[in-house]
Design a protein around this nucleic acid. Structure first.
Length: 684
DNA sequence: CTTATCCATTTTTAGACAGCATGTC
DNA sequence: CTAAAAATGGATAAG
């Protein structure tokens, strides 16, 4: 921050702060925002901006900014648009550089860094990480000087818990008081007695939820009556801020007792609530999946790691890497509050304890290894390199790829073959064309790179548009989307879902793409993901969808987000593929998915109204139930946290009812009141 | 006759980046 | 070096 601010004040150039998560970007942005508008010596004012997929997106907005905070992918995308100010960049901070090791996102970071090194010559790089073992090697690649510091604001102790005794690497042992007779409860209790908070990491979402319930007796006893009152309010607010589901009800009930769970199935507002009130000290214990290991900064007095295994659909049950363990352990110790942070792992036997001590506590994280070689698509990076203007002939292209971290670690021979193959593939499919002496991207290729989709996804769209199923319906379009490699999260078909999926397939056989011979195609997963999206645009309740498919609120929102992006992309590409006639269908479907607004609702409100009243607000404000809307159900409206005047007017017109603002307020008040009472009673 | 308990078997399993343009609070 | 925990379903005991 000091370096960036110094450069900004000196007008020494534009600086970037790059992070792997949107949440981290907004956290960092909040810190930098304090300096936004500060007067510079030359009279101008300092300008700070954030750029991630869910914030502003046009590169021109960044032209006169001094400090830009962005995700890696966003920065990558910006480069592809070749903004004029790129040469004005003077410093790039790469936070959490160890992400280079990640299979799905590491290659993007690696290519991004490689380009930046070339494009912006003379740019200073500052790469940061708490868990890099081979930092000399990494520094060598970046042409940087390694700076190692063991300093932590709060010292960290790592220990193993076995039979109520915590053993530390130096042989020191501490006994934990038996109070509840359950290790997890007693450990949490110890943290709370010292006025601290505890963070438990679990292997699965389900066990995070189960453990947070189990911990409520401990947290409840530690609460003052003032805290209990505040928590009751927070707890009832949970059920008002988003659609109610079984999961949100459980969250609401544990929060009332000072405990909470945190995982990616939660609604993002609920995640934010949990983070916020843990930071404020009201929520005493969080049980979390790895969401919090790399996510926002949420330190705790004690970090308890309940499992060091993880199940993988391909590999089965696996030990997690030391790097991940260190990331979790590093969350222990709150600056300003704790004297020391404790990270505790649980052992099942004496030999297990010894194993954990050797393998995790006394081990360094694994060295960072480039994953560019296993990138699912080198083609995407070759195309982006071309579109970004970094290479228009083989010589330059090989220069770029031979300066990657992979080439440094493993040599360039293998990668060279892959790059050549990617070039041929892109040319064959029409994203690039040969020129004398080199190659250049086609307008299609440029659009693919700008839309930020994998080239294979684009070609898949083309094939799907050329070979339509017997009956071409919205379901066909959704299937095209869910069978592309860019859809996330792809839902997994459990054995209990088989009936649902098979029924759907036989019912919609004529509308689906079932003939493709691509190997390893997981038709069932594609269809199951399609079903979740279909239910979503049919306005089924979030609870119903998660009941039927197992996809929870958070999953649904992310699925929706990626589906919107892909449908938009397919409509942009339809023109290139000579399928202009599909545009109306694609546009309509995009709108239905984007806003979660069903056909019936579109008809009710009138399609023209969508332009004026943003349908997304209908959705976000809780109008997912058409039935409720039709009968003007006041109690459904009570779940709406805020209704715009225009929107309320429109609803009034539409339902023809007599809803008034004060009815809404009264209804909402009642609901808040009853939930509050319920929780207090239950808690007692 | 209903409910509780026990036991063996079956089922399930983390996370999250990206486009673009405009209305709403 | 190693999978573990919850859900399910059926049988039997208790109320």
């Amino acid at each position: 921050m000091i370096l960036m601010l110094e450069m900004a004040f000196r007008n020494a150039g534009k600086t970037f702060y790059l992070v792997p998560l949107r949440a981290l970007a907004s956290e960092k942005y909040e810190e930098f925002k304090l300096f936004h508008g500060a007067r510079k010596p030359n009279g101008g004012s300092l300008k700070v901006s954030i750029s991630t997929g869910d914030y502003d997106s046009t590169a021109s907005n960044l032209e006169n900014k001094d400090i830009v905070i962005a995700t890696y992918e966003k920065c990558d995308s910006i480069i592809r648009h070749r903004p004029s100010w790129l040469s004005a960049v003077s410093l790039i901070v790469l936070d959490e550089i160890h992400l280079l090791d990640s299979v799905d996102r590491g290659p993007t970071l690696e290519m991004l860094t490689t380009w930046l090194k070339r494009v912006a010559s003379g740019v200073q790089f500052l790469a940061l990480s708490a868990t890099v073992e081979n930092c000399n090697e990494l520094a060598g690649w970046l042409d940087a000087t390694p700076v190692v510091s063991e300093w932590r604001p709060i010292p960290l102790r790592e220990g193993v818990f076995l039979d109520y005794v915590i053993t530390y690497p130096n042989g020191k042992m501490i006994e934990v008081t038996r109070e509840f007779g359950e290790p997890y409860l007693d450990l949490a209790s110890q943290a709370l007695r010292e006025g601290g908070q505890a963070l438990f990491f679990t292997e699965t979402r389900r066990s995070a939820v189960a453990l947070s319930k189990k911990l409520t007796p401990v947290t409840w006893l530690s609460l003052s009556s003032a805290e209990r009152r505040k928590l009751a309010e927070i707890s009832s607010a949970i059920n008002l801020s988003a659609e109610r589901t079984k999961l949100s009800e459980v969250l609401s009930s544990v929060i009332a007792r000072g405990s909470a769970f945190h995982h990616a199935g939660l609604h993002h507002d609920h995640r934010a609530t949990v983070e916020r009130f843990f930071k404020k000290g009201l929520i005493k214990v969080i049980t979390a999946t790895p969401t919090l290991a790399a996510g926002v900064n949420l330190p705790a007095r004690i970090v308890a790691i309940t499992s060091l295994r993880r199940y993988d659909h391909v590999l089965g049950s696996e030990q997690i890497p030391v790097m991940e363990y260190k990331q979790m352990a590093g969350r222990a110790g709150r600056p300003k509050y704790d004297k020391v942070g404790d990270a505790i792992v649980f052992a099942s036997s004496a030999s297990d304890a010894q194993y954990l001590m050797e393998t995790y506590i006394n081990s360094s994280p694994e060295p960072i290894v480039s994953k560019l070689g296993s990138a699912q698509s080198i083609a995407a990076h070759v195309l982006a390199t071309t579109v970004g203007g970094m290479a228009h002939d083989k010589k330059n292209l090989h220069e770029v790829f031979s300066s990657t971290f992979l080439a440094k670690q493993r040599g360039y021979t293998n990668l060279k073959l892959k790059v050549e193959a990617a070039l041929d593939y892109l040319a064959k499919e029409g994203a690039l064309k040969w020129t004398n002496g080199g190659f250049v991207e086609t307008s299609l290729g440029r659009r693919i790179a700008e839309l930020y989709i994998d080239p294979s996804t684009a070609f898949h769209f083309r094939d799907c548009m050329n070979m339509k199923p017997r009956e071409y319906t919205p379901i066909s379009i959704l299937h095209m989307i869910t069978s592309s490699s860019d859809i996330t999260p792809m839902l997994y078909t459990r054995s209990s879902d088989m009936a649902l999926v098979e029924d759907f397939i036989s019912e919609h056989e004529g509308e689906l793409y079932l003939t493709s011979k691509a190997e390893n195609r997981l038709i069932q997963d594609e269809v199951k993901t399609l079903i979740a999206l279909w239910f979503w645009i049919e306005e089924r309740s979030e609870e119903e969808i998660s009941e039927m498919t197992g996809a929870q609120q958070g999953d649904l929102y992310r699925l929706d987000e990626s589906a919107v992006w892909l449908i938009y992309s397919s409509s942009e590409l339809a023109v290139f593929f000579g399928h202009k006639e599909l545009l109306p269908q694609l546009r309509e479907l995009e709108m239905r998915v984007r806003h979660g607004v069903g056909r019936e609702l579109l008809e009710l409100v009138g399609l023209k109204g969508i332009g004026r009243i943003r349908a997304r607000n209908l959705y976000e404000n809780g109008f997912t139930s058409i039935q409720a809307l039709r009968r003007g159900d006041v109690s459904a409206l009570a779940r709406v946290p805020s209704i715009g005047t225009k929107l309320a007017m429109k609803i009034k017109e539409t339902v023809g009812g007599k809803l008034k603002a004060k009815d809404l307020k009264a209804a909402r008040r009642d609901e808040v009141q009853t939930t509050l009472e319920d929780f207090n009673r239950e808690a007692e």
